[in-house]
Design a protein around this nucleic acid. Structure first.
Lengths: 160, 160
DNA sequence: AAATAATAGGTGTACATACATACAAAAGAT
DNA sequence: ATCTTTTGTATGTATGTACACCTATTATTT
């Protein structure tokens, strides 16, 4: 039986109330989906203070990586963790909050170039401190284990 | 450089075009999010043939686990991989396709009990064959590695 | 140069998530 | 027995995803 006191490690069986899995491989699939949800919901909770969703935060971080250079929508899209994200609409919301600015590219009028504003940079800076702290506290893993995990995840994905 | 021929293993660096991570632990977080997206989008693609989203498929599978018993909305919700899923609305769509039926519980009129229809059972059966095949082919992992992965994922999640 | 194809971005729709709220029914308190 | 609280479900709103389609611009072909 699972008892939750101060620190609580939730087994998948408890989380989704399922006791039998066809294989460890099948369980691993569900475990990845559940852990991703767990990560995302932790992030979202922290980011709410800054009026950011974790997708909006992701876009700001991508922009920060090139700042003070601008980036076009396509380049941002290519760096999203979830590649099918609809970047124009995420940018709509960042523009509404004055965290970024939109302009048509001079060199290619099809492109829209996005720039971080000072407000955006400040919000991102504060949000990042919080996010990093939470990640440090809530993810329990030695670097060697993390490396092992990264190898397992990268080798499991068969494309085509 | 990464070349994709027949079987193609995508490194996270290529997927999100980022080359530097603060730590293996931070990379692991992103890797989990990306792998979850990869899994979900594969599933969704396969399930489209059956007019199912992967959340709808998840609900059908949960119902199958108790069949021919009925389940109430709350019990279904407690078994979802993403616990904050809005189960009533997913059920709306399954009812519209005649895969499940809704009825008010006799023992507790607050509860709505959900029953799999024969159509639902057949669709689930066919969808499951396809899903299992795809998982078998696209997830490359030995059982021992899957066990290792499950342990890493379950031990990393610190709640509270 | 004119016609055609490819590309970048935006938009519409269906579905899902996250969270707040509403309402009816059941459980508990007095 | 009546009042209060809790519970189960549904619904409204903002956001995001997945995918199709449209338009403007650029690149390519002839």
């Amino acid at each position: 039986m699972h008892v939750c006191t101060y620190i609580c490690i939730v087994k998948l069986e408890d989380a989704i109330k399922s006791t039998s899995f066809a294989s460890q491989k099948q369980k691993a699939g569900l475990n990845i989906l559940y852990t991703a949800w767990w990560l995302k919901s932790m992030l979202s909770k922290e980011l709410k203070v800054f009026e950011l969703t974790h997708e909006q935060y992701n876009v700001l971080r991508i922009l920060k990586g090139k700042h003070p250079e601008q980036m076009c929508v396509k380049d941002i899209g290519g760096r999203m963790i979830e590649p099918s994200s609809n970047v124009p609409r995420i940018i709509d919301r960042l523009v509404a909050k004055h965290f970024v600015e939109r302009a048509t590219s001079a060199s290619d009028k099809r492109e829209t170039v996005i720039t971080l504003t000072n407000v955006g940079i400040n919000v991102l800076k504060q949000a990042t401190v919080t996010v990093n702290n939470i990640m440090q506290q809530r993810i329990q893993m030695k670097e060697a284990d993390a490396l092992e995990l990264n190898n397992l995840l990268e080798n499991m994905r068969v494309d085509q």
